[in-house]
């Protein structure tokens, strides 16, 4: 990306005004690390929003409210019952990048390799966006498809991400496969399950990296709902449901290996989520 000029915003209202005034050439950065991987050479005017008061994590009434400029390192170090994003943060590149990259940047600028959108798709929750007005939208609506995601973030600043605290009977699983520990993801998968009376009452599975945009695997989810919450549910997963997705092999993988890796990673994250939800190991 070619930067023509840069300005700093210190208030949300100021950032919104700069965004409106700058128009199409405006480009928001917080940590800014992904900017180095943007291929477009069109000159952009950067608005640095990393000094906005949007840092930190607060827990209230079973919900975690995360400021968009909270770094991945802060997500990794935060400790609270029912907090799971530390698991995603730990797999995020390395300490130097975790120290500067923000969750807001990862969510607002979705590249195929982005980690947090995959996890947030299964955790659900809301985003608070401010443009001409402030509004709260469901993560499922924003990440419905790439058009909806781009529309939500156009001329708007992400202020907060809110996700529910996991409680008893719930579990989360996350896996990211990389060729080297710092490499871009080859496959990212996440799962959330809720178990009631020994049965899978709710399940959400999301896949990223092998797709241009993180997607929920609704067909796979439907095939798991109501099943007994044990190993048989994972062993009986019908991966033919993946046939309709045009998976993109990364890092020199063959299509066959890519498909195999996707199946393994989905099984892994569902197993991990079920194990957590049932309080044991599968």
């Amino acid at each position: 990306m070619k930067i023509h000029d840069f300005v700093f915003a210190t208030k949300i209202s100021e950032a919104c005004e700069l965004l409106r005034k700058t128009g199409e050439s405006a480009y928001l950065i917080a940590g800014g690390t992904s900017t180095f991987f943007v291929k477009s050479r069109a000159p952009r005017n950067v608005i640095d929003i990393n000094r906005l008061p949007l840092k930190g994590i607060a827990k209230k009434d079973g919900v975690f409210k995360i400021g968009a400029c909270t770094t991945v390192n802060e997500l990794m170090k935060y400790k609270a019952a029912g907090w799971v994003l530390n698991r995603v943060a730990l797999r995020f590149v390395n300490q130097q990048v975790r120290n500067i990259s923000t969750i807001g940047g990862n969510v607002a600028k979705v590249f195929y390799w982005c980690d947090f959108p995959v996890a947030l798709r299964v955790l659900e929750g809301t985003l608070t966006l401010t443009g001409s007005a402030t509004h709260r939208v469901k993560i499922s609506e924003v990440f419905h498809n790439i058009t909806a995601q781009k529309a939500a973030f156009k001329n708007a600043i992400l202020e907060y991400i809110e996700i529910p605290q996991l409680t008893k009977g719930m579990g989360f699983g996350y896996a990211k496969e990389t060729r080297t520990s710092e490499g871009f993801s080859s496959v990212t998968a996440a799962a959330f399950v809720q178990v009631e009376h020994g049965l899978i009452a709710d399940v959400r599975i999301a896949l990223g990296a092998v797709l241009p945009f993180p997607l929920r695997m609704f067909d796979l989810e439907a095939s798991l709902k109501g099943k007994k919450a044990d190993r048989s549910a994972v062993e009986g997963m019908n991966f033919q449901k993946l046939d309709k997705y045009n998976l993109t092999p990364r890092e020199g993988m063959t299509p066959e290996y890519c498909r195999h890796l996707v199946e393994v990673k989905i099984a892994d994250v569902v197993s991990a989520a079920l194990a957590e939800a049932t309080g044991g190991s599968l």
């Binding site: 700093f8 180095f36 990393n50 300490q95 130097q96 990048v97 120290n99 500067i100």
Partner: peptide
Amino acid sequence: MDGKAVASCLVFAFQAQ
């Protein structure tokens, strides 16, 4: 940078302001 280790190759100079 401000007490945290960062990769200076992934930080624009202006971000150090």
